[in-house]
Amino acid sequence: MYRITERVVLSENIVKTVFEAPDIAKKRKAGQFVILMIDDRGERIPLTIVDSDPVKGTLTIIYQVVGKTTDQLAQLHPGDFIQHVLGPLGHPTEIDGVGTAVCVGGGVGIGVLYPIAKALKEKGTRVVSIIGARTKKMLILEEESRSVSDELHITTDDGSYGYHGFVSDVLRDLIAAGTKIDRVFTIGPVPMMRVVANVTRPHGIKTLVSLNPIMVDGTGMCGACRVTVGGKTKFTCVDGPEFDGHEVDFGLLMSRLQMYSEQEQKARDLCRCGNHDR
């Protein structure tokens, strides 16, 4: 049982939840994730750890409400419990020896990108962040991102805030302007990551993506999270979650993410969450 200590709605459907998990908080490094299961009838879903506080023994997650489980999670308030949390899972992000890094985040992916930018900054890397959302009120973690960046660019698809366009446009401009970039980290919707990888590929800039496919156990036992990277099958839970963006088969990743879309809709329609009285 993992007690929730804080819940903040960051934007229309993006929520931050902080909960107690002292053993995981002690071990967790940037880039790692947990599998959580809200109750004994729940499904197991992977969520990247956004922050951890080893002193308070807490973990922070940020997620978008997209289905029944995330909806149910968003309804849990301080004092409520998550039944099961497994972690920290996956390889931590390799952050050593990067001169200049560009961190490109979109939507809820900004939440996952932030700890990586923070860890890079702590290692003395020059961090340029590009964060974007569909519209201004959906943008999250602006101040946090600014605090760990030497340079921060903001984009919105509708032009309601910052640059009018996509994060990949700003990245393209930076490259065109001759900015020296050693590595790009990009996390966001799969189409966005694919475009970012396509932008950096001709310039040979190493680009890491953090993937969030469907998982069950999260320990390498089931293979639900398999992705094709450089023509080879990899398990995101134990081989990832970060991979070379130039090698990932994004089309396959997208179709596998859609595998249960019908059932997910059905589950959401029948959602027990409506019964939550808070």
């Binding site: 069950v216 036992m221 099958t233 596998r256």
Partner: peptide, 16 residues
């Protein structure tokens, strides 16, 4: 084609 949707390991199918 082994990573197409609808293809499971026995471990995943049975675990689910």
């Amino acid at each position: 084609g082994e990573n197409f949707s609808g293809i499971y390991s026995a471990n995943e199918y049975l675990t689910r």
